[in-house]
């Protein structure tokens, strides 16, 4: 019987205590913010969308190799002699035309592993966080500043140069073969091609 009354009293009492707590909170100011109209202040180290400063990129492919999900796709073409690609902001001389620099944000896991190995600090994470798209393809961002025609041009330039070199080499080899009966050694000098690994 004592337990019975005690239970009843306990039930009532703890309910009243709980009600006191919730009633108090009726007058506590809300902690929410009205998101789309009021935007939260992002901390300086925020890790959101990647950005690549192509002026500084030397096409070294280190970020693509560090990426655990292979969301960075880089293709480079060697410059032909006589072309001036300029220097990066920390004084390195560029030697490669970057013809493809795609980051697929549908795949990106925002882990920041690509940022640290970059020798020129040209890839970094920004605080842009609203970039949803209707199509998955639209999430592939192309960072290359060259126009499409230019990219083709650069490739063609390089291929022409390559062909010229090859022709010269063959000519030279023929010459050499004629001289020493030695077979020519074909040289593999393909542009650095990153293969998509699925």
């Amino acid at each position: 019987m004592r337990d019975y009354i005690y239970n009843f009293w306990q039930g009532l009492y703890t309910i009243l205590i709980g009600m006191k707590v919730t009633f108090k909170h009726l007058f506590v100011p809300a902690v929410t913010i009205q998101y789309p109209s009021v935007k939260p202040q992002m901390p300086e180290r925020e890790r959101n969308r990647l950005y690549v400063n192509m002026d500084d990129c030397i096409g070294c492919d280190q970020c693509a190799r560090a990426c655990p999900v292979n969301c960075i796709e880089i293709e480079t073409v060697k410059s032909i002699p006589g072309e001036d690609l300029g220097t990066t902001s920390n004084g390195k001389k560029k030697a490669l035309w970057v013809t493809t620099f795609n980051i697929d944000f549908a795949k990106c896991c925002y882990c920041q592993l690509c940022v640290f190995p970059c020798p020129t600090e040209c890839i970094y994470m920004t605080d842009v966080y609203e970039f949803s798209e209707f199509k998955r393809e639209d999430l592939v961002f192309d960072f290359v500043t060259l126009l499409p025609a230019e990219r083709i041009q650069k490739k063609k330039n390089f291929e022409e140069m390559q062909a010229k070199k090859e022709a010269e080499k063959i000519a030279a080899a023929k010459k050499a073969a004629a001289q020493a009966n030695k077979p020519p050694e074909p040289k593999q000098d393909k542009p650095d091609n990153k293969e998509e690994n699925i």
Binding site: P43, R45, E46, R47, Q112
Partner: peptide, 15 residues
């Protein structure tokens, strides 16, 4: 989570 965010930039998956 805000403390984590100011430290490493992410709220849930920190690396």
């Amino acid at each position: 989570l805000h403390l984590f965010e100011i430290t490493c930039g992410a709220r849930l998956l920190y690396n």
